[in-house]
Structure formats: C-alpha cells, structure tokens
Simulated scan of single mutants.
Amino acid sequence: MKTSVGLLHPGAMGAAVGAVLTAGGTPVSWASAGRGPATRRRAEEAGLTDVSDLTALAGCDVLLSICPPAAALDVARSVAGFGGVYLDANAISPRHAREVEEILGGTATVADGGIVGPPPRSAGTTRLYLSGPAAAVARLESLFAGTHLRPVVLDGPVGTASALKLAFASYNKLTFALAAQSHALAERHGVGDELRELAADVLPDTPLGAPEGIASAGRRAWRWEGEMAEIAEACADSGLSPALLIAAQELFGRWREHRDDNGVALADLLQALVTRPA
C-alpha cells in the first residue's frame, strides 16, 4: 500500500519535492484554500491532488512542511492534532525545529529535515538531510529513495538536520551578499568593469567572478532574509556572534521588492544597496 503524503504548501521548492514523489507513483495531496493562482499552477504541474482544506490532509500518513522559514511554526500550528509523520524541511534554527516538535509531538512523530541544493528536477543536485526519531526517519528515507531528492540520514535528534542546513547556508548565501557589496562598492567608485574583469579571471567560479548569479539571489532574497534571521538565532544560541548574519539579513531585505522578479537587473540590485538618506 502506497504511503499517502500531504504537502504544506507548494512553493517552488515544495512543488518540486512533491513532483519527485508523484513521478514515482506516490500520491501527494495539498490544500488550495487561501492559496493564489501561482501556487495552484505549481501544484497542478507537479501532479498534486487538491483536497481543498487542511482538515482533509489530516488523514495522510506523512505531512511535509516546506515553506518560508518565518512561517514554519504557524504552519505546524495549523495542523495541530495530526497523527502521522510530520517532516519539517524548512530552513529554521535547531531551536525552532524543537519548537515544531513540541507543537505536534503529542500526536505526531516529528522529523527534522534540511534541503540543500536547488529544487530537485534532476538527479545528483539536491539532498534531504534527515534527523529525529529512527522509525520516522527510516520511513522518510524509504519514501525518497531512488528519487531526484537524495535522502541522507544523520545520527541525532530533531534539530541536527536543521543545524547542518543552516551551517552550509551561512557560507553559501553569505557569498552572494559579500559579492553584491563588493560590486556595489566598485560601481560607486567607477571601477565596476575592472572588478568584474579581475574577479572573472581570479575567482571565476564564485558569485564575485560570475555576478549574474547575484540576480538570481535577488529574486530569492525575500526568503533568504528570513533564513539569515534563523541562522543568526542559531549562532546566538551556540555562543557565536550573530552580527554577520544580521548584516546579511538587512542586505537581503533591501531586495524584497524584487521577489520572484525574473527580469531584475544586477544594476538595480546594486543600486538598492546604496545607503538611503535619512
């Protein structure tokens, strides 16, 4: 008998994760109530079954939460009382992962997930790290085995997978913030072309040397802003300074208006970093 899966809520990453399951014959449901046309389109393209509201998802064996970090706790509260396996696969701090476990742990078995890589549309690009109760983790590992989303089991409680995800993201995403700041500084002093030439020659495989990647970061910065807040919290909880992450959060916040804007230009993103007069 196939495991029935519910997905909360299919953004770009969530829809792609749902699609790897439906492609393998696993039924995946979602609730369209309150969702916009873009979400509905993604769900349809991923082969998800619309069950209208969250109440209908309660009968699923597994619920996957893949949403913006700031919404993770509210999403967990929205399905309080669910009795299956609940995977929180959001970029949240270990402390917030444990809060999700507290919210749902009375009825559900909560597992912690960290997705590293782009939406899994081809093999070898994206990993799903898993930690938490052994039986739940084993079930999720089996669910995703052989799909484009490679499951990797970590030995540790809820919070372990989130810690690894955030540790990786703190480097990976900060490189885009640093590159943007560098290019903005060079542009302000009239040496933008020279920096691009230098970086392309010396650091070609980095956001500094390939600044077109900054435009892609700009479209996703609305999500990364919240992720930086989660990493800052994780750092503070670990006795590390959160200052660098707080600065990156502020930088990504300046690109909020370019959410999902496929036409945004690098020049516009760099200009947004210029300090505005008080």
Score class of each variant (00 low, 15 high):
Met1Leu: 09
Lys2Ile: 11
Lys2Glu: 13
Ala12Ser: 14
Met13Asn: 06
Ala15Asp: 04
Val17Asn: 07
Gly18Arg: 05
Gly18Cys: 03
Ala19Ile: 05
Val20Asn: 01
Thr22Ala: 03
Ala23Ile: 06
Pro27Gly: 04
Pro27Cys: 04
Trp30Pro: 02
Ala31Trp: 01
Ser32Thr: 02
Pro37Ser: 15
Ala38Val: 13
Ala38Cys: 02
Arg41Lys: 14
Ala46Glu: 05
Thr49Gln: 11
Val51Thr: 13
Thr55Ile: 07
Ala56Met: 02
Ala58Met: 15
Gly59Thr: 15
Asp61Trp: 01
Leu64Lys: 04
Ala70Ile: 07
Ala71Tyr: 10
Asp74Thr: 11
Val75Met: 09
Arg77Leu: 09
Gly84Asp: 07
Val85Pro: 01
Tyr86Pro: 03
Asn90Thr: 15
Asn90His: 08
Ala91Gln: 08
Ala91Met: 07
Ser93Gln: 03
His96Ala: 13
Ala97Cys: 06
Glu99Asp: 14
Glu99Arg: 14
Leu104Cys: 01
Leu104Trp: 01
Leu104Thr: 00
Gly105Met: 05
Gly105Pro: 04
Val110Cys: 05
Ala111Asn: 04
Gly113Cys: 05
Gly113Asn: 08
Val116Cys: 13
Val116Gln: 13
Pro118Met: 09
Pro118Ala: 12
Pro119Gly: 04
Pro119Ala: 02
Gly124Cys: 01
Arg127Asp: 13
Arg127Val: 14
Ser131Ala: 11
Pro133Trp: 08
Ala134Met: 03
Ala138Lys: 00
Arg139Glu: 12
Arg139Asn: 02
Leu140Ser: 00
Glu141Asp: 14
Ser142Asn: 11
Phe144Gln: 04
Gly146Cys: 07
Gly146Glu: 11
Gly146Leu: 06
His148Ser: 12
Arg150His: 12
Arg150Cys: 08
Asp155Met: 02
Val158Tyr: 01
Thr160Ile: 08
Lys165Arg: 08
Lys165Met: 03
Ala167Ser: 14
Lys173Leu: 01
Thr175Lys: 09
Thr175Tyr: 11
Thr175His: 11
Phe176Asp: 12
Phe176Gln: 10
Ala177Asn: 04
Ala177Gly: 14
Ser182Cys: 14
His183Lys: 06
His183Gly: 06
His183Ser: 07
Ala184Ser: 11
Ala184Pro: 03
Leu185Ser: 11
Arg188Pro: 02
His189Cys: 10
Val191Pro: 00
Gly192Cys: 00
Asp193Met: 00
Asp193His: 03
Arg196Val: 06
Glu197Leu: 09
Asp201Glu: 13
Asp205Phe: 14
Thr206Arg: 04
Pro211Arg: 08
Glu212Asn: 10
Glu212Gly: 15
Ile214Glu: 10
Ala215Trp: 04
Ser216Val: 15
Arg220Trp: 10
Ala221Gln: 08
Trp222Lys: 07
Trp222Val: 12
Trp222Phe: 14
Arg223Gln: 09
Glu227Gly: 02
Glu230Pro: 05
Glu230Asp: 07
Ala232Pro: 00
Ala234Glu: 00
Asp237Tyr: 11
Ser241Ala: 12
Ala243Ser: 14
Leu244Asn: 05
Ala247Tyr: 06
Ala248Tyr: 12
Gln249His: 14
Gln249Met: 07
Phe252Ala: 06
Gly253Glu: 10
Arg254Trp: 07
Glu257Met: 11
His258Asp: 10
Asp260Ala: 12
Val264Ile: 15
Val264Leu: 08
Ala267Leu: 08
Asp268Met: 09
Leu269Gly: 11
Gln271Asp: 15
Ala272Gly: 07
Leu273Ala: 06
Arg276Ala: 15
Arg276Pro: 04
